[in-house]
Amino acid sequence: LETFPLDVLVNTAAEDLPRGVDPSRKENYLSDEDFKAVFGMTRSAFANLPLWKQQNLKKEKGLF
């Protein structure tokens, strides 16, 4: 999966995202380093959170 810089994904409308980016899964296009910096946890820890908590975190970080 291709990764993009944080500033390309945060608070970006679906139509302005790079081609192929799923707007409902912007976090998947962050590098592992950016993911950890944004969410303060690994991808696996994030995946283990309840869906509502994942969505709330994504909203807080501008990735929803």
Rank of each mutant, 00 (worst) to 15 (best):
L1A: 13
E2G: 13
E2N: 10
T3W: 13
T3N: 08
T3A: 08
F4C: 07
P5C: 05
P5T: 06
P5L: 04
P5R: 01
P5H: 04
P5F: 04
P5I: 02
L6F: 12
D7G: 10
V8D: 08
L9E: 02
V10T: 09
N11T: 08
N11E: 08
A13R: 13
A14D: 15
E15P: 09
E15F: 01
D16E: 12
D16I: 06
D16K: 11
L17E: 03
P18M: 04
R19N: 14
R19M: 14
R19A: 15
G20N: 11
G20F: 09
G20H: 11
D22M: 05
D22S: 04
D22L: 05
P23C: 07
P23N: 05
S24E: 14
R25I: 06
R25A: 10
K26F: 05
E27V: 03
E27T: 03
E27N: 02
N28E: 14
N28R: 09
N28W: 10
Y29I: 02
S31E: 04
D32C: 07
D32H: 07
E33S: 11
D34L: 05
F35T: 00
F35Q: 00
F35A: 00
K36D: 12
K36G: 09
A37S: 13
A37H: 12
A37Y: 12
V38Y: 04
V38D: 00
F39A: 00
F39M: 08
F39W: 01
F39D: 00
G40V: 04
T42R: 04
T42D: 15
R43D: 01
R43G: 01
A45L: 08
A45W: 06
F46W: 08
A47C: 09
N48M: 12
L49T: 02
L49M: 09
L49D: 00
P50A: 06
P50K: 02
P50D: 08
L51T: 09
L51Q: 11
L51G: 09
W52D: 13
W52M: 09
W52A: 09
W52N: 08
Q54I: 03
Q54M: 04
Q54C: 01
Q55M: 13
Q55P: 00
N56A: 14
L57I: 10
K58L: 09
K59A: 10
E60L: 11
E60D: 11
K61Y: 08
G62R: 04
G62W: 02
G62F: 06
L63H: 04
F64T: 15
